[in-house]
Design a protein around this nucleic acid. Structure first.
Lengths: 184, 184
DNA sequence: ATTAAATTTCTGAAGTTTTTGAATACAAAA
DNA sequence: TTTTGTATTCAAAAACTTCAGAAATTTAAT
């Protein structure tokens, strides 16, 4: 199997970005490749297409599975495993975000909580705690929002996404409405 | 200078997270340290506190400046440079986000655009293009939204942040309101 | 100009991560 | 049970990143 020039460029780009998203180059490439390939691929096809070793592909598959980004397909009468993306682009983006939250934000939050509970003994410590409190609040907001986004129906999401610069206006509405007695 | 046990834990944690945010361990530590330290520090103080070489600190400073996360202070009659955070926690988070957008999202978007403009010659290419289109749209939405967030007034932002699960309701309001003739 | 204080750059050593490919394990078919 | 096609593991090699400390440079004071 071989890729068109443009598709190859995309896959290589995914490799370069890979480490930014939390995995390494090869795994990034694999993820990109499987995402733009219509039919699920075997491990050998992946190895050939990307010119990497079979062992490396095996590792990559395991990793991508742990991120729940790819899933296995089977073809009756064929004992090879075929791999394809685990969902829509939006699903995949969500998975990456969720997984990174688990690995980065959650541990940070718990460390910050520990720290904030401690009593401050002097001005410097007080300052440090204030800053940590702010980081904590920020991260918590991000967490709350990401959970919120996942709870929205696709239509609501669509609606929200299209909102763009309308958000300011909507906020103003909301304030007006909520200020009226008897609401919320 | 030396850090309390808890503060040290925070700084070290920043180091571990550092690479996730786009820089390396030492630079992460430096960023954490400067963020929770009330008074701006000299390069030598940083080196001593973190037990790293002076040269390393110099590199780190340059990098953190390129991210616009720290700024220099001067004390009259003292030729040393003193470094402190470049703004509030929210500012800094914004900077990191903005900078990463510039380094990751923007190049990806332009590659995707190139690719989407090309004509598809067969089914596989058509599928690849569809997927890329979806990624493109998603990234563009993220871009639009982040710009939007930065345009909001602090009060609006506050209001939005507190919204949480209220977002669903507000969207419903919006739909109702916008459906009425004579609005928007 | 000279000196002294401070910062930056550079290099190779040390450390870390990634990759390969051979060995191993597994599971279905013969 | 053996063979065969497949997937996984693992140790060693390669590639990459980070770092300390020496050398070079800049800056400011005398």
């Amino acid at each position: 199997m071989s890729l068109s020039e443009k598709n190859l460029a995309f896959v290589m780009h995914c490799g370069e970005m890979g480490s930014r998203w939390g995995f390494n180059r090869t795994i990034g490439q694999m993820c990109g490749l499987l995402t733009i390939t219509k039919e699920p691929m075997t491990a050998n096809e992946i190895a050939d297409t990307l010119s990497i070793s079979r062992g490396n592909v095996s590792m990559g598959i395991k990793e991508l599975q742990s991120w729940r980004l790819i899933k296995v397909h089977h073809i009756p009468g064929d004992r090879k495993e075929y791999y394809g993306p685990a969902g829509s682009i939006w699903d995949m983006a969500n998975r990456v975000f969720e997984e990174r939250k688990k690995r980065e934000i959650d541990p940070t939050l718990s460390l910050l909580r520990d720290n904030i509970l401690e009593e401050a003994h002097n001005d410097d410590e007080r300052f440090a705690q204030q800053q940590m409190q702010e980081i904590h609040d920020l991260l918590e907001t991000v967490t709350k929002w990401s959970a919120e986004l996942q709870r929205l129906s696709p239509e609501q999401l669509q609606s929200l996404m299209k909102l763009g610069s309308g958000i300011g206006k909507v906020l103003d509405f909301k304030d007006k409405i909520l200020k009226k007695p008897g609401k919320e």
